[in-house]
Design a protein around this nucleic acid. Structure first.
Lengths: 146, 146
DNA sequence: CTTCAAATGTAGCCGATGCTACATTCAACC
DNA sequence: GGTTGAATGTAGCATCGGCTACATTTGAAG
């Protein structure tokens, strides 16, 4: 059965392609989420805030923000604070929601808070809509049982 | 409470550091797992097999194998098949086990096979030992309930 | 043994994400 | 209004993971 063999291979390759595509966007998601949170808590978001948040040099933070701007997610001018575009705000909101669901799901599974926080960072960008919905209902069910 | 603020920040930064570290090793894990599977099913593993598996050019596959070799996970000589070192075999075994647990866990959660396969590729490298164990027992519990 | 196609290697390009070292700008204080 | 330190910007380097184009090796078929 050569045809089914080929399509299985194809499917496997596509999965890897999606993983690669996810990588391209996950830093952006982390950054817009961080920008939104920092603005909310501190009023403005500066390069140094992002640099310390992600434990990178200010150069790296600055260049990442430039990429966000290029992608239409953020706006900034030299020496001015970082702001989000409408699109950036929307992405930040989605990211935050996803992040929260994954975190609550891990807690409901029985994972400790520290591990849940750590695992969530890695996992959140790779969870499909389908899986996210199931995680949500799992959390709902577990909290009803309490 | 400046101190607790600092330590929360620190913890957040550490999570991001782990995510970055995971990225550095996940391709390696995918590759050794693929090499092991290809050797098992085809006898030998060639660059072209890896290239088609991951949907990348043979150049990319070749260079990744070179990195595996540098990391002590694989051995290869020009124009010869790729083989795994002891360490590579161990990593492949671990990766496969992890992959399998995450996949079965998603199925037990109710995720469709196609989505589970896709999500597993992204998630597996970010799951801690603690979470993995909980996933395992969740699968066990669900299968008992059938 | 030659020839030819497939597999692999090599050269050189790109972008993302890290860094250090040095230059510049800004804001706040005297 | 000048000085000064913190925040940013700029230059230049490294590695990873993609690529195309071209060169070489190998193995099998004639």
């Amino acid at each position: 059965m050569p045809e089914s063999g080929v399509s299985r291979k194809q499917a496997a390759a596509n999965r890897h392609e999606r993983t690669r595509a996810d990588h391209a966007t996950e830093l952006a998601e982390d950054y817009v989420e961080a920008v939104a949170e920092i603005i909310e808590s501190a009023g403005v978001c500066r390069i140094k805030d992002l640099a310390s948040r992600f434990r990178v040099s200010h150069v790296t933070a600055s260049r990442t923000v430039a990429r966000l701007q290029k992608a239409g997610l953020a706006t900034t001018e030299p020496h001015a604070p970082v702001e989000l575009t409408e699109q950036g705000i929307r992405l930040a909101r989605e990211s935050k929601r996803k992040h929260h669901i994954v975190y609550e799901f891990l807690l409901a599974l029985g994972v400790s808070e520290a591990t849940a926080a750590s695992d969530t960072e890695g996992i959140e960008h790779h969870v499909s809509h389908e899986t996210l919905k199931l995680m949500e209902s799992f959390v709902r069910k577990s909290s009803n049982q309490d």
